[in-house]
Write a protein that binds this DNA or RNA. Structure first.
Lengths: 333, 333
DNA sequence: ATGAAAGCGCTAACAG
DNA sequence: CTGTTAGCGCTTTCAT
């Protein structure tokens, strides 16, 4: 049997209460007694049970992370940011993958909320407005990652996806490109929609005709959608909704004998680790994923501790990593 | 306040015990009463507290996953296998990254073991024999991933890293390569050591002279170690301890004007998603990471439920993905 | 400064 | 079949 607080109390010849005080660094414990207790703890190899503790306090030291798919290279970095910051603050994090399935997402939220976590970081791209109020009723701190909502009482950490995408397209236009196409992500996923809209707006502002394909955030989708585009269009540039799509598209282009960036320039989005390793190295919108994760935990923490009640929306700065697939821009890396 | 079991009991006009029975699908509850209770639960939106439950049962429905770094592309797939299987069985998983730091690893094991998890899946590459017995004393189910030990009472899920690596080098030799070099991972990390040893053995068996560099499991290490090799050696092939290293090395080779595979053939290890996207597409040892993860959970589960007590060691089959960086082999993908 | 006792939400004998 | 009664391990008044 693992030693309990009672074992320690007995060994140190004090009450459970005193041991509890020592554990919690309560200052009003006699120095001698404190030492005695600490020795007993040491000797027994005692560790307080987080479970009992949480029950007694009606709190939880674990935070839940719900994301689409840890296997998508954008998320591990974000998750790492979350975990590092969480551990630094003494929290433990539990993860669930939704595969962008709203049903699963709801299920996990319920599971986590009602069962064990003190707060939830939600990377949902598909949450509808109506679901939002349901979340509210859960009475549990939430931080939304990578999602923008107006007039919300939720905490949000994100970047300005619209502006970033707009700037990327603008850059292409400034380079003299007239035939810029776009491969988007899944319908209904907010970041995908936002980037697409930014693309459309930027094109319209320049009086250019947009060409869009919709797919999923994957290499395969990039590959097949690019082929589809090439069937009826001769692009000089591509803005891809994420890096994976960009890789697939580049492969498709090359398989048709076209050169990147000579024939077609490409800009991706996310700046996953591979962007710099790829050949040609990918120009892309650089999203501070780690930072987003770490910041999310900070917000969540202050909510969990009840230090703050007003909704806080943090918009972090994006940047650009100009590499080989697209000429120009300031070299940032 | 969240409703408790007592609220439900009152509303349904029964005792807590009965509600508890309903929750736990205890068959001996009158049908009518059961319905009344279920209605009350529904009406109140009641959800049992996992914390209280765990405390009462002295069990835990969460399993801990300790791995080097979720940011290393080999691990997300493994983690996904674990999470999927865990959720299927009603478990929740908490993750910690050790960055291969033995001190951190110990710390996390202690934290998890003493605090809240019912079992631990450990992807440790650095565990020393002496630490092993410490783990035993924790009295908590363990599954070791990706690590082989003789005569152990731990459950283990892995592939035959030695044989896989040996076969890879053999393949190169059979292709006629005489100057095969190897870039290994961090010292003391078991998989790195194993692959290196297999390389050395295969080379010796063929009467060839080995050339080894040691670094870390990263792109950067692959790049710089390859340059280092090129300074004093003219390889015709490289066996890299993982795919990331392979990518870095290929980049280094190309930066020196050498062609892959024409001048230098390359085989990596892991078969991360990106291996097939890379250009040239990487030939590599294909490790069934997802499967390893899922299997680990199965083993852990049977231990946690006490269905089994004998140490079980599962060695899954590896395969090879022959792609562009290395000629020959059967095309598997 | 320390101890006694109640209670966090649930489960598990034990009666009835 | 259902209710009563103890705890699970810890925290937290409230006395002392």
């Amino acid at each position: 049997m693992k030693p309990t607080i009672l074992d320690v109390a007995k060994l140190a010849n004090v009450s459970k209460a005193t041991v509890s005080r020592v554990i919690n660094h309560n200052p009003k414990v006699d120095k001698n007694i404190r030492e005695r207790v600490e020795q007993a703890i040491e000797q027994l190899g005692y560790r307080p049970s987080a479970i009992a503790r949480n029950l007694a306090n009606n709190t939880s030291n674990t935070i839940g992370l719900i994301l689409p798919d840890i296997t998508n290279p954008y998320f591990p970095v974000l998750a790492r940011g979350i975990e590092d910051q969480a551990h630094r603050s003494g929290y433990t994090v539990i993860i669930s993958n939704t595969d962008n399935d709203p049903r699963l997402e709801q299920e996990y939220i319920q599971m986590m909320a009602q069962q064990q976590v003190g707060g939830i970081i939600l990377i949902s791209s598909i949450l509808e407005e109506e679901k939002m109020s349901e979340l509210q009723s859960l009475q549990i701190p939430f931080v939304l990652c990578d999602r923008t909502i107006e007039n919300t009482t939720f905490d949000i950490v994100t970047i300005d996806h619209y502006r970033a995408a707009f700037e990327a397209v603008e850059h292409l236009i400034r380079q003299g490109h007239q035939h810029i196409c776009h491969i988007s992500g899944p319908v209904k996923v907010q970041t995908a929609e936002t980037r697409k809209q930014a693309y459309l707006d930027a094109m319209e502002a320049a009086g250019l005709i947009p060409v869009v394909r919709v797919g999923s955030f994957s290499y395969e989708a990039g590959y097949s959608q690019m082929l589809s585009i090439l069937n009826e269009y001769e692009p000089s540039a591509l803005f891809a909704a994420n890096d994976l799509i960009a890789f697939g598209a580049i492969n498709a282009l090359q398989s048709k004998g076209m050169k990147v960036p000579d024939d077609v320039a490409v800009i991706g989005c996310d700046d996953i680790t591979f962007a710099g390793m790829y050949k040609p190295a990918l120009s892309t919108i650089s999203v501070p994923a780690y930072q987003i994760g770490a910041t999310s935990v900070e917000l969540l923490e202050s909510r969990m501790k009840g230090v703050r009640n007003d909704a806080k929306q943090v918009v972090l700065e994006h940047s650009f990593s100009w590499r080989e697939t697209c000429i120009g821009g300031k070299q940032t890396r």
